[in-house]
Design a protein around this nucleic acid. Structure first.
Length: 329
DNA sequence: GGCCAGGTTCGCT
DNA sequence: AGCGAACATGGC
């Protein structure tokens, strides 16, 4: 049963400045592969599920940051021109091509602590998840534990329950449907390494969706107050998860997970402190970044994930380095 | 081996 | 209201 594949191509414009490599890198945690997303050899790939049809999207950018254009190639057994619209819309959302950074940059240039940070990450947009469901499940899996354990759990869940398509010998996987997670048992989740609690949270959320009692995707168009109320009512969702989804799934500009341990450490460094800031300090200080705190959050995590911690160092430090090469002038 | 990780819930004061 | 314990598991 050799499937016959079709391929179609299109172009996606992005609002400049747009740095494709940085944005696709962020979406894959600068690891090359993370979860359903792959960024290798300059190409971002992800298996899309467009109304039940699986197709691989492969994206690349040739054009400069100031005049960005992404080329997309769709490959699958059921791909035709009609798939281009919905597929490009989904990828454009995932890679944040429609975001306008200009107002954020105008604010950040006036802010001493942010200047170096944004300078080193010029053109980074905020990647979004394809669905609110995906962001929520990933967030729950990542609560409290280290980034490496979170990576393991997320990978295991996607491998076990995500739809897959094999192309040229490579297996690609999309994020699991709510129905797949709803029919899986708590015990199955536990064998993947989830705690009993996380297994219960994921199971209950998936079942609520398939039962028609919960419509996460409708939150995208809802005002923030409603989003917060509904998400907070779910077991397993606290303040951190709500803020994380505002940033990562709902396209809000001013989300800020003030209780995030990593964020508190990064802010401490950014402000030239020895210790992490407290959640209260973080919240109070961050008000000056409003209404662009989702971008600040993303840029902080990008600096940490990409290993460029120097972007967090204060700019005005005297900087007496041991190996100082004498510089002219 | 112990403690901490990109939190949240639950049970006690 | 506020505080502490439990939770899974890899890494230091």
């Amino acid at each position: 049963m050799s499937a016959r594949f079709q391929t179609v191509t299109a172009l996606i414009p992005a609002i400049p400045p747009y740095n494709f490599a940085l944005t696709a890198g962020y979406a894959t945690y600068f690891r090359g592969r993370y979860g359903t997303d792959i960024f290798e050899n300059g190409a971002f790939r992800r298996l899309l599920d467009i109304n039940g049809r699986l197709m691989l999207a492969s994206l690349s950018a040739r054009s400069p940051i100031a005049a960005p254009q992404l080329s997309i190639e769709l490959t699958g057994t059921d791909v035709d021109r009609a798939a281009i619209g919905p597929a490009t819309a989904q990828v454009a959302k995932i890679l944040g091509t429609g975001q306008d950074l200009t107002p954020f940059y105008a604010m950040a240039r006036q802010d001493k602590a942010l200047t170096r940070l944004i300078g080193g990450l010029y053109g980074l947009h905020v990647p979004q998840t394809a669905t609110v469901f995906e962001a929520l499940i990933l967030a729950i899996l990542g609560q409290q534990i280290s980034a490496s354990v979170a990576h393991q759990l997320r990978t295991a869940l996607i491998r076990a329950y995500g739809p897959s398509l094999t192309l040229a010998g490579t297996v690609y996987q999309a994020f699991p449907h709510p129905s797949s997670l709803a029919t899986a048992g708590i015990e199955e989740f536990r064998t993947l390494g989830l705690s009993l609690r996380k297994a219960e949270y994921v199971s209950a959320i998936a079942r609520a969706i398939t039962d028609g009692k919960l419509d996460l995707e409708s939150l995208f168009a809802k005002p923030e107050s409603e989003v917060v109320t509904l998400l907070s009512s779910l077991r397993g969702v606290g303040p951190w998860t709500v803020e994380w989804l505002l940033v990562r799934a709902l396209g809000r500009k001013d989300g800020f997970p003030a209780s995030d341990l990593a964020l508190l450490r990064m802010m401490g460094t950014l402000l030239g402190r020895e210790a992490p800031v407290t959640p209260e300090e973080a919240r109070a200080y961050s008000s000056r970044w409003s209404p662009f705190r989702s971008y600040v959050t993303t840029y902080l995590f990008a600096a940490a994930r990409s290993g460029h911690l120097e972007l967090l160092q204060p700019d005005d430090s005297p900087s007496d380095t041991e190996e100082n090469e004498s510089r002219p002038n």
